[in-house]
Design a protein around this nucleic acid. Structure first.
Lengths: 221, 221
DNA sequence: CGGCATCCATTTTGATACTG
DNA sequence: CAGTATCAAAATGGATGCCG
């Protein structure tokens, strides 16, 4: 809680005292895919000024959800990373994302920004653990200058910014195709068939990829 | 989205555009246990003025998460209820609550308000579906002037404001004991043993009650 | 009681300029 | 690049009065 607390002895209210302010949960979302630098955070969050970003990160650090780290060589540059407490907000952020996938992802609006990392988080939200039973594989997604990978291991999934060490499958697709994936308009299988996406690597792992995610049926409010 | 949108084509951001403003998710929390009247909402949310409450409810109604209803006879008074879209925010609110139970529920602060309904939601957040396999029972919780009931049915739980029609077990406890339950400091079994809570009704259903909830291990940030 | 309108003090935010 | 400083615009909190 910063200045304004709800002053309620309630788990939800206490949580919102800490992460309920504007931008805060989106910052957690950004860090959920790995450490990020100050400038990268700001670039992904149009409208968030340096002053407020600085204040938010300080707040999250004070609250023990974020820590300042130095990226490993050869980068050696300062960055922010989630602590264990911060990372455990993942399920809550994904629950919000699942709601959004179902009830709020109509067509992109004219002025909306998009970053592939958000789509990767969308995939994570749509991940079906049961479909990954007995599967261990690393999928790498490439789009323009951004690369992510998803590490699937028997019902668990982890999505991280950056290339993988030994990807089993590499999927390359345009930002647009990625965005359509995020919206639930495009199924991965369809994208591969139509050539909107191309994949190389282990054909078995690729075949199972299509079943790993089930976007919630979209509804209108 | 009201005025200020994040303008991101991202499921999380889109959701927060709709329910991310101050008070909004707490209003959803209130309605998650059943329809509420304007005045009751305001009473439970200290600090929220009538003007802002009115604006928020209008917003939620416009967005299709809330609808105005007339309470059934003999009340016949206006109230607000969640639509299907609104009710489906339940998992997200509970995920936030689970995080709070684990990371943010230290001792109550001097000026914090408390309402039993919040604790009931806390119980719901701590519900372990597997522990309710094959169990069908209705538990009623009474505290001073507030009564709730939980309807458990084979791995599912529903918690609603008001008395139950045919409760299998009735648990009566002080607001303090209820608050300690919410904090994770007190286990239901312990409360019954110490006399902080009393229970009447089906002894089988009562015996299983103790296992239905597992508060997440508390941690400090 | 349910709810809207208004006025005003305080916070929060957004945008931009500036510094090590 | 990583932040601090500054200022204007918007959101909020609280009080109050009104009306059906």
């Amino acid at each position: 809680m910063d200045q304004r607390s709800y002053a309620q002895y309630c788990a939800t209210a206490r949580t919102l005292d800490i992460v309920g302010e504007r931008w805060t949960l989106l910052l957690v979302r950004e860090l959920l895919t790995g450490p990020k630098r100050f400038g990268d955070l700001q670039r992904n969050l149009r409208g968030l000024g340096t002053g407020l970003l600085s204040a938010r990160m300080k707040h999250l650090e004070r609250e023990g959800l974020v820590e300042r780290i130095t990226l490993p060589p050869p980068a050696r540059t300062p960055a922010y990373a989630l602590t264990e407490a911060g990372a455990e907000l993942g399920p809550a952020v994904l629950a919000l994302a699942r709601w959004g996938l179902r009830w709020a992802m109509d067509d992109p609006r004219e002025d909306e920004a998009f970053h592939p990392g958000w789509a990767v988080l969308g995939l994570k939200a749509a991940f079906v653990p049961a479909a990954a039973a007995g599967l261990t594989a690393v999928y790498e997604f490439r789009t323009g200058d951004e690369t992510f990978h998803a590490r699937v291991d028997d019902g668990e999934i982890e999505t991280v910014y950056g290339p993988a060490q030994h990807p089993d499958v590499v999927i390359t697709l345009s930002a647009d195709a990625f965005r359509e994936l995020a919206s639930g308009h495009l199924r991965l299988g369809t994208a591969l068939e139509s050539g909107a996406a191309t994949a190389t690597g282990d054909r078995d792992a690729l075949r199972r990829l299509g079943d790993l995610f089930r976007l919630p049926a979209r509804r209108t409010r």
